[in-house]
C-alpha cells in the first residue's frame, strides 16, 4: 500500500530554492502529493511542507537528497498523523434549492468554514481543515448535485506538535 510522508524542510529564503527542491524530486522520480512554501518568521528562511507518496525508505531517501542541497537548513521526515496539518480551500458553489442549502451548511459544519460572499445563488466559501476532511467535504457536495463552479486548494502546511 502506498503511504504518505511529510517532509518538513527549512531552507534559506533565496531565489531558486523552490526550483532546486522541486526539480530534484522530479528527476529522482518521487511522487509529490503536495508542496507548499512560504517565508519563515525569520525573513532569511523559508519553510516547505512536502507530502510525498511512498514508503519510509523512499521518504528517507528524498530527505537525504534534499538535505544535500547547499541552501537547505534542515529536513524532517514525519508520519502525517504525527504532524499538525492544515489546508485551505476556496470554492464557489451554486445552490439551487433549500435542500441543497441545508446540505451545504451541514457539510460546512464538519470543517472550519466561512462564507465569504454571495451573488444570487453563487456562494463563495473558505474551508480550513486536514486534506482528508476537505476531500470528504467535496464528496458530500458532489453527491448532492450542488454544482462546484470553482475550487482551489492551497496544498497542505504542517508542523510538529508542540
Amino acid at each position: 500500500m502506498k503511504e504518505r510522508f511529510i517532509l518538513l524542510v527549512v531552507t534559506r529564503n533565496a531565489p531558486g530554492v523552490l526550483s532546486r527542491v522541486s526539480s530534484l524530486l522530479r528527476r529522482k522520480l518521487f511522487n509529490i502529493d503536495s508542496l507548499t512554501v512560504g517565508r519563515a518568521i525569520c525573513n532569511r528562511e523559508s519553510r516547505f511542507t512536502i507530502v510525498i507518496e511512498g514508503n519510509k525508505v523512499e521518504a528517507n531517501k528524498a530527505a537525504l537528497l534534499i538535505e544535500r542541497l547547499v541552501e537547505i537548513r534542515s529536513v524532517k521526515v514525519m508520519k502525517p498523523e504525527l504532524c499538525l496539518r492544515r489546508e485551505i480551500v476556496l470554492a464557489t458553489v451554486k445552490v439551487d434549492s433549500p435542500a441543497q442549502t441545508k446540505i451545504l451548511h451541514e457539510a460546512e459544519d464538519a470543517v472550519l468554514s466561512q462564507e465569504l460572499s454571495q451573488n444570487g445563488n453563487l456562494i463563495t466559501i473558505e474551508l480550513i481543515d486536514t486534506s482528508q476532511k476537505l476531500d470528504a467535504f467535496l464528496v458530500k457536495i458532489e453527491a448532492s448535485s450542488i454544482e462546484v463552479i470553482d475550487w482551489v486548494r492551497s496544498g497542505v502546511i504542517a508542523m510538529e506538535q508542540a
Binding site: 531517501k61 537525504l64 537528497l65 544535500r68
Partner: peptide, 8 residues
C-alpha cells in the same frame, strides 16, 4: 562522505 549514498 555523502549520506544520500547509503542504502541507495
Amino acid at each position: 562522505i555523502d549520506s544520500s549514498e547509503f542504502n541507495k
